[in-house]
Design a protein around this nucleic acid. Sequence first.
DNA 1: AGCATGGATGCGACATTATTGCAATAATAA
DNA 2: TTATTATTGCAATAATGTCGCATCCATGCT
Lengths: 139, 139
Amino acid sequence: MAADKRVSDLLRENGLKATKGRVEMLGLFLKAGRPLGQMQIMEMLGLKLDRASVYRTLNAFTEAGIIHMAYVNGRHRVYELPDKCSGRNCHPHFSCRSCGMTACLEGFQVRYKGNLGKGFVAERQKVLIEGLCPDCKEK
Amino acid sequence: MAADKRVSDLLRENGLKATKGRVEMLGLFLKAGRPLGQMQIMEMLGLKLDRASVYRTLNAFTEAGIIHMAYVNGRHRVYELPDKCSGRNCHPHFSCRSCGMTACLEGFQVRYKGNLGKGFVAERQKVLIEGLCPDCKEK
DNA sequence: AGCATGGATGCGACATTATTGCAATAATAA
DNA sequence: TTATTATTGCAATAATGTCGCATCCATGCT
C-alpha cells in the first residue's frame, strides 16, 4: 500500500523504526481524524497488538512528538495528532459530564491573559469544557 | 471546635451527613486553600481514614458540588474547592512537564470564543497550562 | 541478497489507583 | 433513647499502565 510507505517514512523521519504495529497505529490516527485511546486502538486493530506494545508505542509517539495526549477521560488517556494545534495553542475539547462523550472543538479560540510568574515557561495549554451534550440535556 | 460546627452545617446544607471523617476532610480543603489528592489527604489526616472512605467522600463531595476535580496529574486526581471558580470560569492550573509540580494560576484570565454547537451546554472549563517550572528550566 | 545487531514485541508478572460487597458502626429523626 | 438508614472499614476485585526478559524483526553493512 502506498499510504503505508508514507507512514513508514514519517516514522523514520522521527527516529522510530517502522514496524508493522507502529505503521498500523499511526495509520489509524491519520485516518481517524479524532482522538483515540488505547482500548479503541486495540479494537480497531482487531486486538492484533499486545496491550503493552500499544502503550509503549503511544509513549514513543508522544516522545517523538507525532501525537500528544489530548485529555484524560475518566481513567482513559486519549491521544491525537497535534496537527490542529500550533505549539502552545491546542484546540479545546468538550466532554459531557453525563455520558462521557467527548469531541474536539474546532473553530474555537481560547485566549488567556496574565503572567505565569518568574521563570515559568508555558509550552502548551489544554482546555476541556465540561457540560451536557444534546442527548443528555433532554433528560 | 467552633470551626467544626460550621463545617458540619455546611455538609448538612448539602445533604450530607456530618460524619467525623467528612468533617475532617472538608476542614482540610478549607484550611489548605490548594488542590488536594487522595494520598495527600490520607497523609494529612495521619492515615486515620480508610482509602475507600476517602474515595467515596471525594465522590460524594463532588456530586454535592462542595468540591470539584481540578485536574489529573499523571494518574492522580486532584480536587479543590470551587470557590475561586465562578460557574463556567474556573481558574487555570500550571503543570511542569518535567517534575510534575502543579500550581493554581490566579490572576489569570481565560476567555474563549466560538460556539459549542446546537444543543450543547457548557457548565465549566478546565484549563491546564503545561511547560517548565523555574527549577526544571535551568537544566 | 545475506548477515549482524540493537531496538521492538509478546507474554506474564507486577504496580497503582479506584471501586464494590458486606458486616459493623455511627449520625440523624422521632 | 431508640430506630432507621447512611456511612465506614476491610478485603476482594477491577481497571489501567509498566516492567523484565526471551524472542523476533527492521535496518544498515558487506
